[in-house]
Design a protein around this nucleic acid. Sequence first.
DNA 1: GTCTATAGAGGGATAGAC
DNA 2: GTCTATCCCTCTATAGAC
Lengths: 196, 196
Amino acid sequence: MRNREETYGLIVESAYKMFAENGFDKTSLSMIAKEVGISKPAIYYYFDSKEKLIDVLFEEICKEIVNQYTLTVDDLTATNFEHYLLTIGFEMIEEQERDVNFNKIFNEYILLATRKDKYMNELNKIQMGYFENFSKVMNHGVKIGVVDGERIESKSNMLVMVIDNIGNFILTGLELDYKTIWEEAVKSVLRGVRND
Amino acid sequence: MRNREETYGLIVESAYKMFAENGFDKTSLSMIAKEVGISKPAIYYYFDSKEKLIDVLFEEICKEIVNQYTLTVDDLTATNFEHYLLTIGFEMIEEQERDVNFNKIFNEYILLATRKDKYMNELNKIQMGYFENFSKVMNHGVKIGVVDGERIESKSNMLVMVIDNIGNFILTGLELDYKTIWEEAVKSVLRGVRND
DNA sequence: GTCTATAGAGGGATAGAC
DNA sequence: GTCTATCCCTCTATAGAC
């Protein structure tokens, strides 16, 4: 027998894994209970319903995204700017390749969000945070003179489009040279000034 | 009472609509039957199982994508190249905004594909067709002198990443200026030569 | 906190009449 | 071709013992 926090954590952990692997609907509470090593009704001691479990998981995942993908601008100089942009992209790519489950379950939530507003609100916040983050970095790039200020929002948005979709393509198992694609995207937004 | 082809078509049509709106698992055959105006067992006269119906729909959708998104290169000249690239992107964006259901159900299939190989094979073919199409256009651009030949594959792939993900963001209801983003992407791959 | 047992609903699928 | 009736299964959720 385990204590409260331990079991709770195991349920969330197993749910994450199984929801990612099978989807919400094809994962029953019995399956999760079996994975944890408890009986199905025991889950109801911790979560009012299956939907609540899905909700809690969503909140956890949202928190993780916000924490992980907040970009800082303070240390950016003309000499390290390009390298920084490249690095954050490379890190995201490596992260996606390492843990496909994260992207899988996140796509589940995106589809869920297109059908239930309560998920959509949170999702949109995350997306906008994404855009704001990159916008912040790019505007800093303009300030320190390594990025052409013209159409700066479009450039920033384009970068988001590219890095975000790389995760989706990784999900489909297509093995492209994603780092080179990201490099191309970064180079293309810097090209105006540095003329390379 | 209707004839065979008519009912078949209505089932496929209703399934398309309801699968897009509710997802595969949350759409029962009873719901589809009700939408068509027949009884549930009548569906089994046309389809062996729910899975078969999902399969047939997938094939239809794949065919439609292949037909719709095959790009031609023959009429491309130095003067109309940029306009052509812009236009195909704009058309895709407008199409996505017009019919969100298409993207919704396609994302359902993508998730399904990550769990069942038979869908993944077809999906990968489509994706590769996508890349080849844009590659063809871009290589033609190099030939007629409007695109810098360096890293031509990366540029081509980047364009695919951008246009493809715009559809996903439209799905989430985020109202960005997608046409401007696409314009930025196109301009950035042409920038090397035309220096604008 | 976790269990066994079970209610209650709804799903996919089939039998057989018309 | 389409129907009614029905089977069987699995799911979510609850009751109540320990």
